[in-house]
Write a protein that binds this DNA or RNA. Structure first.
Lengths: 238, 238
DNA sequence: CCGGGAACGTCTACATTGTAGATATTAGGC
DNA sequence: GCCTAATATCTACAATGTAGACGTTCCCGG
């Protein structure tokens, strides 16, 4: 076997000199960097250093930094599994919502990319991994009996709410739940009480935010509303 | 001549030489720069040049570039008027939604800031202008009879959906509506038809997206769902 | 009128970034 | 062995944010 792949040792520690590089390896390293140290830590030089390679060599696997960012978002979105053939479309949508939420909590630093990267590329030209969820959910809905254009509307409302919720939750997310309330109170205390009476009064409720149930209730509302307004197939159980 | 800079004569070319600078002026110039040329055009040097000032002088009005970005988002959000004393809370929420949508369309390049900047600052420490809508909408809901904590839930669902919709719409937004369909078709044509049959079939519907009614219907669904689930005061007319 | 202090403005300098382009190194075919 | 093409690395450059030193202007109490 003279293939260039040499699984002598993974890049644990400082060894791992010269394994063959690949796009996947590069993107995985980039994602790790972002997860560990934030978006602005992802520079060509830092990434090259993490891979024990010359920074310039990375341009073979991503045309430029923007393409690298796109690659990272695609990689993260690939973690989301969608089963397009589930007849229980409501249950499926609910599960996907929770999965996406967990994914966002696993990679909070990537969320800005998730929501803003698509803004700079017209829909048809996005990385395929980004479009796959759209296609699969459309399939889910159409198979469930929605007209194609209605499926599009449902998808928009659904994903719109989903992304909005994720942004909301990450805004209120603070790492240490003990420190959370203290920090919040501290921060809120700064607000002039004349101008922000209700916000200050809500400090406690703000402190114990439960994203999962908040999301779930939102989805419930949305689904019931959709069913009513779109004359959808009301498959509730079997 | 003794001093190279003489304020006596107006600068040849672009006027407006030496008016006193202020935070508002700086932020307004920054916003204009972002609106005209995009986010990455907003550098200290470019901004200084737009104001005919030394870039370093700007640090008097914004501690650093991040603070400047925060200032821009605050400035944009200030364009949103909320009347906290309207008894028709549903109508008010609907109007705000449309206003925010129009605001986003007026400043598409600022939207990434709108949705990501709060992620880097804990709630209590944000610029006050950013928190004002929250406070006012809470007031609106509480005055309408919601319990404080329910008001918070409603706010979250509402703003979540709203931000999600804006992101959705801006993604599909292409400047020239004639070019729109062409570009879309072109882009979609690139997609492998085996993998993306429904997306490709929906090209036409994607092309004539109507954000306003899409948003309006979403709000309707949300409000009806909320009313049902939260035992809200069902003030429909007067 | 002045003269001193504070606010404001400008210049230079430096570390870091993305990336073009030249150069070195390696692999495979004869 | 050598020749060509791919691949890896180095050097270089323009642009960025921003610290720190230096000038200039303004105001206010004497």
């Amino acid at each position: 076997m003279t293939t260039p792949q040499q699984p002598a040792g993974d890049d644990a520690g400082s060894g791992a000199r010269k394994n063959r590089l690949s796009r996947e390896v590069v993107l995985a390293a980039a994602l790790k960097l972002v997860d560990d140290e934030g978006l602005e830590a992802l520079t060509m030089r830092r990434l090259g250093q993490a891979l024990h390679r010359d920074p310039m060599g990375l341009y073979r696997y991503a045309a430029n930094r923007a393409a690298l960012l796109d690659g990272v978002t695609e990689l993260v979105l690939d973690e989301l599994a969608i089963f397009g053939d589930d007849p229980d479309w409501q249950g499926q949508l609910r599960r996907i919502a929770h999965d996406l939420r967990l994914l966002a909590l696993r990679h909070p630093n990537v969320v800005p990319l998730l929501v803003t990267r698509p803004l700079s590329t017209p829909l048809g030209l996005r990385p395929l991994g980004t479009l796959r969820p759209l296609e699969q959910i459309l399939g889910l809905l159409i198979d469930a009996g929605f007209a194609a254009s209605d499926a599009l509307h449902v998808y928009r409302a659904y994903y719109g709410f989903l992304y909005g919720h994720i942004l909301n939750e990450l805004q209120e997310f603070i790492v240490d739940p003990d420190e959370n309330e203290a920090l919040l109170r501290l921060g809120l205390h700064r607000l002039p009480s004349k101008e922000f009476p209700r916000l200050r009064a809500l400090a406690h409720q703000l402190a114990d935010y439960d994203g999962a149930t908040e999301l779930d209730e939102g989805i419930t509302i949305l689904l019931s509303g959709l069913s009513a307004h779109l004359a959808a197939p009301l498959i509730k159980s079997g």
